[in-house]
Design a protein around this nucleic acid. Structure first.
Length: 417
RNA sequence: GCGGCUGUAGCUCAGUUGGUUAGAGUACUGGAUUGUGAUUCCAGGUGUCGUGGGUUCGAGUCCCAUCAGCCGCCCCA
């Protein structure tokens, strides 16, 4: 049997309904915050990611779907969407003025990784990027939007982890202090940590090895090494979040895998996801636009994993909200003809109804209605036609009533909307 | 990329030290009921045993390879 490529999955049914509900909510919430949608190509030139995500990152190192196209171009199926959005904003001169530019995207991303629950090779991200504003206020605005988005989806108990990773100028001082601390007791750390201290020093801090955790006692904290402006920025953001009642906790050990972050970095984990617990992440990336050949424009953004979000919502809220349309069952040829006209009249005024076109036994149609979760069945036979009515049966209670055909649309509309 | 586990009906799973015609529940199809759906009763498909090799008189069972999924690591959404 033919099957989907490893790590690629088909979305349909109940799971897709969560996706759709999430996307609708995102468009509504982001739209009212003044964000506009952007859609960028799945394929980008290799250089776009090398220069943004960073050549040292695992994503660029080993996780990219990368190939040479028929024209000899080195292209990549995007592993994330921020770099593409920045590239597009530069290319189309969206950042030419000093006006803020607010964009969001919804799209598939690709990473060549080992499969696991909640980790796919094609996965979906929803993200928002804010260009042109360096203030902590712009970060609070973006986070408030994110908070509203998740709240409207029915997610409770979210606590953002936030940190400040400083600037490219201030960070070396911390790394120096931390590496010195590490060197003093390096024999107490595991081999993984010896690798991490070179590639991504903060990762040493969340090593699961007990002896490493013990060795970390009294380690230097990154927020103690911030320059004055970054420290002030960080304090102001925390004050705003507190003022807005957005729950957060400071996590001086938080570090992100992409190279481009400056100052604020944050993420949200979920215990409903198993080992792949990261639900969303983001932060400030003031240097990225210039790095990709654009003007010097500050930026802030985040991305949330749609697959993982759908999984969490399925866990905490069950099935996605869904109302099956009423089912119209005609009995006999005369009624079948009339049912078409009736259904068309309903469709034309925006009422949802499904038409049973199989003919045959009513029993069979009823069984189908029961299986598919139809709440209201409409039975149209000769008796009803002669009387100008239709029989409405409420599946949950088994109650039946006779509705005048003239009132059908009005009676159905509240139930279907 | 590293380590471990799993794969039998649409779904959830049994299946003896290798033994002859593959099982249960549920779902599905038809009928008891030709204008009434979760219950009841009766009758029934329920299958390349993930795939391909090998050992054997004989493989769902043992061996090898391969594919897919799951768990942990790395990392991330």
């Amino acid at each position: 049997m033919a099957q989907s490529v490893k790590g690629m999955r088909d979305l349909f049914g109940a799971e897709l309904r969560w996706f759709q509900h999430i996307e609708e909510t995102a468009r509504r919430v982001f739209g009212r915050h003044g964000y506009g949608e952007i859609r960028t190509p799945i394929l980008e030139e290799l250089d776009v990611f090398k220069r943004s995500v960073g050549e040292s990152s695992d994503i660029v190192n080993k996780e990219m779907y990368e190939f040479t196209d028929k024209g000899g171009r080195q292209v990549v199926m995007r592993p994330e969407n921020t770099a593409g959005v920045v590239r597009a904003a530069i290319q189309h001169k969206l950042l030419a003025s000093s006006d803020p530019v607010l964009l969001y995207y919804i799209g598939q991303q690709f990473r060549y990784e080992r499969m696991q629950t909640g980790r796919y090779r094609q996965f979906w991200q929803i993200g928002a990027e804010s260009f042109g504003v360096a203030s902590p206020e712009s970060e609070a605005e973006s986070l408030l939007m994110l908070h509203s988005f998740l709240k409207e989806l029915g997610l409770k108990q979210m606590v953002f982890s936030i940190n400040s990773v400083g600037t490219p100028e201030s960070r070396p001082a911390f790394y120096e202090a931390f590496r010195a601390f590490f060197a003093e007791r390096q024999d107490r750390f595991c081999s993984d940590c010896h690798r991490r201290i070179e590639s991504n020093p903060l990762r040493v801090l969340d090593c699961k090895n007990e002896s490493c955790q013990a060795a970390l006692e009294g380690h230097p904290v990154i927020t103690d090494y911030l320059d004055e402006a970054s420290a002030k920025h960080h304090a102001r953001l925390k004050a705003l979040l507190t003022e807005l009642a957005i729950p957060f906790e400071e996590n001086p050990r938080l570090v992100r895998g992409l190279d481009y972050y400056t100052r604020t970095a944050f993420e949200l984990l979920s215990s409903d996801l198993g080992a792949q617990s990261a639900l969303l992440g983001g932060g400030r990336y003031d240097g990225l636009v210039k790095q990709l050949g654009g003007p010097e424009v500050p930026a802030f953004g985040w991305a949330i994993g749609l697959d993982r979000l759908a999984m969490v919502l399925q866990q905490v809220r069950g099935e996605a909200p869904h109302v099956a349309p009423a089912l119209l069952i005609p009995l006999g040829e005369r009624a079948a003809t009339e049912a078409f006209k009736l259904a068309r009249g309903l469709w034309d005024v925006g009422v949802a109804v499904q038409l049973e076109t199989r003919g045959g036994a009513l029993k069979k149609a009823m069984a189908t209605a029961n299986r598919t979760g139809v709440q209201t069945v409409l039975i149209l036979g000769d008796g009803e036609l002669d009387g100008g009515t239709i029989t409405a049966r409420h599946m949950a209670t088994g109650e039946q009533e006779s509705w005048p055909l003239s009132e059908l649309a009005a009676r159905l509309k509240p139930a279907a909307s």
